Each structure stands twice: as C-alpha cells, then as structure tokens.
Amino acid sequence: DILKNTDGAIDIKSSLDNSEVEQRVSVNKDEAMKYGLTVAQVYQQISEKLKSETTSTTITSNSNDLAVVIKNNASETTIKDLKLLEIKGTKNNKDAKVKLNKIATITNATTPASINHKNQTRYMTVSASVDEDHNIGLISRDIQSKIDDYNTPNGYEVELTGENETINSTMKDLVLMILLAIVFIYLIMVAQFQSLLSPFIVMFTIPLAFTGGLLGLLVTRQILSVTSMLGFLILAGIVVNNGIVFVDYVNQLRLDGVDKRTALLETGRARIRPILMTAMTTILAMSTMALGVGMGSELSQGLSIVTIGGLLYATLLTLFIVPILYDIFHRREMKKIIIDDED
C-alpha cells in the first residue's frame, strides 16, 4: 500500500503474489500424547504415507549400479483417505492405532510458493520500478520516510534495499575517493611548491569547480547520479591545474624582485591565454558527450556536464579568487636564496 500511494512507483510486486493453496495438518499435542505420540512422529508417519517412491535396493548390470525404486499410489491419496489414516502409537503400554482426524485437523491454507531466509530470518520482498518521469533517489527518500512512520508488528522490521541501497553505497565510496584524491593533490603540490600555503590557495579552486558542476546539473535538469559523481572526481584533478599555473608564475615573478601587486596583475595578463586554452580544449572535447546523442549516452552525460560546468565556473573565478586569496595570505616578501660554492 505504501508503494501504491507513492508517485512514480510502478510494476509493484510481492513475493507472496505467487502463493499456493495447501492442505495444512495441525496436530493436537494433548490428544497425540494420549497415544504416546509427538508431533514429529505423527508427521513422519504421514510423510511415509505420502511418499510416492522408495529406493529398496541396488542391482548391478553391466558394471553399472541401478537403484530399484518401488512406486506406490500415494498420488491418488485424497483428503478423506488422509483423515482416516491410522497412526501407530501406544496406549496403556500396548500398541494402538488412532485415526489422524482424532488427533489432528486438516484445513486449506494459503502459503508462499517458497520461504526465503537471510541470516536465519524469514523475509519477503515487495518490489517496484520507477517510471521515466521520476528520480529513484527522490522516490526512495519518500518511501523511506513513509516506512519510518509505519508501525510494524512485534518481531517484524522493514528495510529499503535494491538499487537504492547500491547507489547509496557507491555514493559513499565515491565521496571517500574524492576526499582521498584531494589529500593526494595537496601533498603533491606541497612537494612542488615547497610550501604549505601556496597549495592551500590553489585548493580553493576545487570548491569553485564543485559549485560549477552542481550548477551545470541544475541548469540542464540532470540528477546527481553515480556517473555525475565521477565527474566531480575528475574535476578535483583537472581544475587545480589553472591555480598551479597562476600561483607558480606569481612566485617566479616575486623571486625575480617584482612586487606582489605587480606580479599578480602581470600573471593575470600573461597566463590568461594558456589557462583559457587548457580549459576550452577539455570543454570542447566533452561537449559531444554532454549533448547525449546516441544509445547509452545518458550514462556519461552527467559526467561530462559536471566537468564542463565545473571547468567553466572555476576557470572564470580562478582569475579573480586566486589573486585575492594570494594577496591575503602572502604577506611576507619572497627572496631568492643564493648559495656561494666558494663558501
């Protein structure tokens, strides 16, 4: 009922839909004990009666072992025959027989075609598909909120699994991968710049890129999917290139004796062309993927849109944000260290 009342959920199925009608034998323990019988003993005798085949022996023919199977007419046993089945037991320390209908009741009942277990616990599955006009993430969030408000009977629990569970697990792994990639990028730049401050300034381009990627998804009305998350992972490695080129050139000019403000302005003029060229080559290369033309293109469309949006946004703001941050954090003058070999 929860799924039926959720917009976007279609093809709702339950593992109980394929239920079957069976004859259920319920043994009265008290009556059975009068004949010295347990429930297991009663069922064992019923099973022997209903067994249609019995392997009696094995014969050898031409060096091959063949089983000799005795078949009976158990398949012709009716409910009436089953009720009148005589169960062997004891009464007053003597062998006795009692008809099954005296110690048990036989009723019709609906039962699942199969009983599923997970970690020794029975479970049933209710599944649904998502139509083309809805997002599986949003629908899953809606269903989860309804499940949280649903009061389950004692001993029961409801959990949301399937594709939504896989997506959430993959998303968490991707977030960890992105964080790890950012740490590695920072450490590599520390080794390059021989400083902790310059890489920190370059790292500010990553939030700009992520903001641009989200804006790209918003403008194109694309969902935040697993492939689009891969786009953010790619952005983390690409977008820092512009900041590295800018900061490195500023440091070179300042080491040559140029004052900080002049070095920033000169770097903006000298490095704007290579920065724009490197960004545009990537953007143009991924533009065909962003158009989503061809079969299966929707799988890579989110990745390309995030990459293009992040590069556009970060490239334009890098020319403004990075110089401002550099001016704020770099207060000391930079000087060359000259080592005289004679000394």
Rank of each mutant, 00 (worst) to 15 (best):
I136V: 12
I136W: 01
G137C: 07
G137R: 10
L138P: 00
I139C: 04
I139H: 07
R141S: 15
D142P: 01
D142F: 02
I143Q: 01
Q144F: 12
S145N: 15
S145C: 00
I147Y: 06
I147C: 01
D149H: 13
D149M: 11
N151R: 10
N151T: 15
T152P: 04
P153D: 02
P153G: 11
Y156L: 08
Y156E: 09
E157T: 13
V158L: 15
E159H: 09
E159Q: 15
E159D: 11
L160M: 10
T161D: 14
T161H: 03
T161Y: 08
G162L: 03
E163T: 15
E163Q: 15
N164L: 01
N164V: 03
E165H: 06
T166P: 04
T166D: 13
I167S: 04
I167V: 09
N168T: 00
S169E: 13
T170E: 10
T170P: 00
T170G: 06
M171S: 02
M171Q: 02
M171H: 07
M171D: 05
D173P: 02
D173H: 08
D173M: 06
L174A: 10
L176G: 13
L176E: 12
L179Y: 10
L180G: 14
L180S: 15
A181G: 14
A181C: 13
A181D: 10
A181H: 01
I182A: 13
I182Y: 03
V183P: 06
V183D: 11
V183Q: 09
V183G: 09
F184M: 14
F184P: 07
F184C: 14
I185G: 05
I185S: 10
I185K: 09
L187Y: 00
M189Y: 01
M189N: 04
M189E: 08
V190P: 06
A191F: 12
Q192F: 10
F193S: 01
F193V: 11
Q194P: 01
Q194V: 04
Q194F: 10
S195G: 03
L196K: 07
L196I: 14
L197V: 08
L197W: 05
S198Q: 14
S198Y: 08
S198K: 14
F200A: 14
I201W: 04
I201M: 01
V202D: 05
V202F: 07
F204E: 03
I206H: 04
I206M: 04
I206Y: 06
L208P: 03
A209P: 11
A209S: 13
F210K: 00
F210R: 00
T211S: 11
G212Y: 00
G212L: 05
G213K: 04
